[in-house]
Structure formats: C-alpha cells, structure tokens
C-alpha cells in the first residue's frame, strides 16, 4: 500500500537518454507499443466504426477510418439523443452517492483507525468483506425492499406535483442510497489505508490536550484527507457510473424515465435491421465520456484508488 517506499528505478533522468538506447531497449519499446496497440485497438476500432456509414462499415477494414464519403456523425447524434436522459439520471445518482460514500467512508475509517477499542478489527473485517460480496446475493431482497416495503414513489407522491420533481426521482433516491451503502466498504478501506500512515503522535497529543474525537477529525484528520478524498471521488464516480446490475434490477426497464446510462446503452442499436454497430459504438463512447474525461484528467488518483 505504501507506494512511497522507493524504487531502484528512479535514477536521475538523463536528457541524453537517446544516446544510451541499445538494441534491447528498442525491443522493449516495440513491445510496449505493441501492448499499447493491444489495449487501444478495441477502443480505436469502436471510435472509427462509430462514424462510418453503413456502406463504409461493410467496405472498409474495421480499424481504418472511412473515407470522406463514408463519414457520418448521425450515429453520435442519435446515440446522444437516446442517452441524454440516461446521462442526466446517472449524474443525479452518481454524484450524491459518490460524495456520501466518501464522507461515510472517511468517518468510518477514522472511527476504526484512530481510536482504540477492542473488536474494531472485527468490525473492520465486516467492511472489507462487504467489498467482495457478489451483488447477486443481495439483489432479490433489495428489489423486494425498495418496491414492496419502501415503495418510495407512493410515499413521496405528494412531492411529484412540485416543480423539478417527478416520480422518477423516487428511483433516483433509491439508487443513491443503494450505491452509497455498497460503496461505503471500499471507501472505508481506502481511507483507513491512509489513516494508518498518519502521525499517531500528533493525534494522541491533541487528544491528551482534551480535544474531542470530533475536533481531532475536523482539525487534523480531515485536512490531511483531502488528497484521499480526491482519490475516492474519482474511483467511486467511475464505479457508480459504470455500474449496471442495480440499474437493471431496480430500474428494470430501458424506457423507465429514471433509466441510467448503462441501462439504456445495453439496449441501444437493436433495430429491426439487425444490430446497428456504429450506433452501439457511438453510444458506448457517449456513455463512457464522463468516465473517460475523469480518467484522463486524474489517471494517477484512479490508479491509487485501484490498489486496495
């Protein structure tokens, strides 16, 4: 977990590195570039396919861009129209639950790390195990809970007459709470990993001075957690945005007004004429756009979030 520990590789970067390139190095870079091709080909193919006309689709190689006559952005437009409500819905539940997860995770990690009581390891173990639960094991009770027991849209019916509120927001609220609950374990583990490396002395000293747990959290721990919050936000945002099973089982229908972007994408491009691949590719990119942007901008934070 401690990536700080240092590495034999980090010798001083020499500007004249080119002079030292040997045959072995050339081989290495060729290999690395080959791997780049391996990882990017499916994505690149998807991108060029998404702008092909159906004729170009049949006549050009899948990974080559079409000629000028074979380019159309119509599929992107169709995909964007089909997915736009899904994008909004996904934003509506992804952002709040990302924030809630991070806050709860930080609190739980603090309570389980920087305080001392017996049994906290056991409690923490339940959090870790919570990361690994296959969601299949909970979705039947979950849908039973939300649809039969809670029935939010019925209970909140008085709200739906208000401006900006609609019945679909009941489903959105369900998704926010659900994603928050299942996101807490991973966030807790990520924060705890950081809190374990914090200076215990400083916190002990503060507590001996009579500072309450809350004060220590607010004054010392929280400010030091900001980088970790960035990691957790980025990681959780992509996880929740990409999630599918809860969308499928709680929203159920692609045509539900609350349908998420992944749910709509799963049914996109199945036209009477067979599978419309360019449309599917365009849809895949539209749906992935927010995560791609976040990933490209914050690749380091994402990589850190990955190392549970």
């Amino acid at each position: 977990m401690s990536t700080e520990t240092h590495s034999q590789t980090d010798t001083d970067p020499t500007p004249s590195w080119i002079n030292r390139v040997s045959a072995g190095d050339v081989g290495l870079y060729v290999l690395l570039l080959g791997l780049v091709a391996f990882y990017l080909t499916p994505i690149q193919t998807g991108l060029v396919t998404s702008i092909k006309t159906s004729q170009a689709l049949r006549e050009t190689l899948p990974f080559l861009p079409p000629g000028a006559a074979g380019i159309t952005f119509e599929k992107w437009q169709v995909a964007f129209e089909a997915l736009s409500t899904g994008m909004i819905n996904s934003m509506l539940f992804t952002i709040p639950s990302t924030i809630l997860c991070a806050v709860f995770g930080s609190m739980a990690a603090y309570g389980l790390t920087l305080a001392n009581w017996r049994g906290q390891v056991l409690v923490f173990a339940t959090f870790i195990a919570g990361i690994f639960i296959p969601y299949q094991a909970v979705i039947i009770p979950l849908s039973e809970f939300w649809t039969v027991w809670v029935n939010l849209d019925g209970r909140l019916a008085f709200l739906w007459g208000l401006p900006l509120l609609a019945e679909k927001h009941a489903t959105i609220i369900e998704l926010i709470i659900t994603h928050t609950a299942y996101g807490i374990p991973i966030c807790t583990v990520l924060f705890r990993a950081q809190y374990q490396t914090m200076s215990w002395e400083m916190i002990e000293a503060a507590r001996l001075d009579g500072a309450s747990m809350w004060r220590v959290y607010r004054r010392i721990v929280l400010p030091l957690s900001i980088p970790m919050f960035a990691v957790v936000f980025i990681f959780q945002f992509t996880q929740i945005w990409n999630e599918f099973l809860f969308s499928l089982t709680l929203i159920r229908s692609v045509s539900d007004p609350a349908a998420s972007v992944t749910l709509i994408l799963s049914g996109l491009g199945e036209a009477m004429e067979g599978v419309d691949f360019p449309l599917r590719m365009a849809g895949a990119f539209v749906a992935a756009l927010p995560t791609l942007i976040v990933y490209v901008l914050f690749a380091d934070e994402f990589a850190e979030g990955v190392q549970v």
Binding site: V148, R252, S253, V254, S255, D256, G267
Partner: peptide, 21 residues
C-alpha cells in the same frame, strides 16, 4: 406507452415490475 424492443423483453420487465409494485 411504447416500451423497448428486444422481443418484448423490455415490455415484459416493465409490466412485471408494475404488477409487482
């Protein structure tokens, strides 16, 4: 309300969830 395609999978799912609710 026209619902989805895919050989009525979508429609059936929507109807099922409405009936269940």
């Amino acid at each position: 309300r026209a619902i989805g395609g895919g050989g009525n999978v979508e429609l059936d799912a929507s109807v099922a969830s409405r009936l269940r609710d």
